[in-house]
Design a protein around this nucleic acid. Structure first.
Lengths: 187, 187
DNA sequence: ACCTGAACACCGTTCAAGT
DNA sequence: ACCTGAACACCGTTCAAGT
């Protein structure tokens, strides 16, 4: 999950790309309902430019969250190194909650990802990270054996819901805790 | 959750309404991506007629599932009369899975419902049904005390996901079982 | 190479004109 | 009262024309 270096670009193109990403990140954090047109306008570029850099809405959303998804993926390994598997999973879920809070628009994207090629590149590392957590948990007898990463992603898919009110964060963590209780082995 | 009798309507209007509902039910069972236009066409009516009977897409979707939601709601009481609370909840989740399998389009609707007035009429009975199940479970010490109906609805919201492949039914039941394990009190 | 913005296809919804 | 379908506003995406 490393940031690949981009091919040489003209300076104006480079600048536009950065601008678009900044604007999109801001706008998407506020609401998942931003239009492509408004993003282009706020970035001060034509719609064609927006589409030259990001061929679809999906591509833009993924590019915006690329860095954060990377951190999430890396965190799985780190947490496993420092904690018991079940505890690592619990802590990772907390990060997931924090991530989900601002990440509108990921709703469809992360899931439609299973088939679509484009997002598969982003989807696979996430699946791998979850698999790593689940596998360690199973080895330690702390996580039930009949769940895979796809199950977990579906189970926490409420995180990408749009209607987040004030105390969404608390509620999200609470629900993740309940989901986790379902995932750990009943003693 | 009773079917309210409608005001007197002209025969052609009555017939159109029925036709639209039949077509919409069929189309929505197949996919949540049906357009209003295509529903009108298949029913052999103008788009204006469709909108005269159902002022928004949301209203149409809700009307289509009205009957099924009613059955779901009624089932909660019946199951509680015949089973232990935790078991009743388990069985109700099975019905929910069967319901969710064909019920695309309910995705947004059932959730946006919290605020919107229209859908609140349908939303409240569902909340009440879940509350009944939870309350009985708590009384019997079989369900954890820190969950409410809204939590449960969020936790099972993966049911309304669009990308349902072949063995979706099996997967859905499996995930509901996991969610349930998180909801029951750890002994 | 890259940028611009008018234009296209398609959606949900509305409304003037008909019976 | 109710029906019809052209029309509207708005979305994501494309493309001819410019630098």
């Amino acid at each position: 999950m490393t940031q690949e270096p981009h091919a040489a670009r003209r300076t104006d193109a480079e600048r536009n790309r950065t601008l678009i990403l900044e604007v999109a990140r801001d706008a998407l954090a506020r609401s998942g309902e931003v239009t492509m047109k408004s993003i282009a306008q706020q970035a001060g570029v034509g719609q064609g430019t927006l589409y030259r850099h990001f061929p679809t809405r999906e591509a833009l959303v993924l590019a915006v969250y690329r860095h954060d998804v990377g951190e999430l993926v890396d965190a799985a390994k780190d947490l496993l190194a420092e904690h018991e598997p079940a505890e690592a999973l619990r802590l990772w879920f907390d990060r997931l909650a924090a991530f989900g809070r601002v990440k509108h628009g990921l709703a469809g994207v992360l899931h439609a990802a299973t088939r679509r090629d484009l997002s598969a590149t982003y989807y696979q590392p996430v699946v791998d990270a979850i698999d790593r957590l689940l596998h360690a948990g199973r080895q330690a007898g702390q996580v039930r054996a009949d769940v895979d990463a796809a199950d977990v992603l579906l189970l926490v898919s409420f995180l990408w819901r749009a209607d987040q009110d004030e105390d969404w964060d608390r509620r999200a963590r609470h629900l993740l805790r309940i989901a986790l209780d379902g995932l750990v082995t009943t003693r």
